[in-house]
Amino acid sequence: MGKLSAVWRETNHRYRLIAHECGNCKKMYFPPRDVCPICHRESIGKMKEKELSGLGTVESFTIVHDAPPAFARQRPYVLALIRLDEGPVLTAQIVDSVASEIDIGKRVRSVFRKVREDGKGGIIQYGYKFVLE
């Protein structure tokens, strides 16, 4: 059940791109952090939830040909480092495009997609992916 509780615990940030903003230095963290690594104890109790816009820019990307089982039907797929407009950089899949359409600097927006299924009878995990804007 450990995996199940982890899925549930991460729902907010995976479904809605909920970040944490340090109330002290205003730096935004995604995934959310309970303590700001810059302000340390000064940030305790001051981390605030912020919903990110889901808009960002491709900083770098790679094309995955040797896909894990859950992604076999999407092979080859693009995995990118995306800098969100609010500052944080995250790793995410860019979907609905072929690799030749992706480039560094291209604008992307988040979409809600199925990330993986825990077998045929298990839980379905949903979360953020990105499409070209």
Binding site: R73, Q74, V95, D96, V111, F112, R113, K114, V115, I124, Y126, K129
Partner: peptide, 16 residues
């Protein structure tokens, strides 16, 4: 639908 789309993802996009 793409392999990573289902009724939940379509519903969420429409709702948003």
């Amino acid at each position: 639908p793409s392999p990573d789309e289902d009724v939940a993802t379509i519903s969420v996009e429409a709702a948003r």
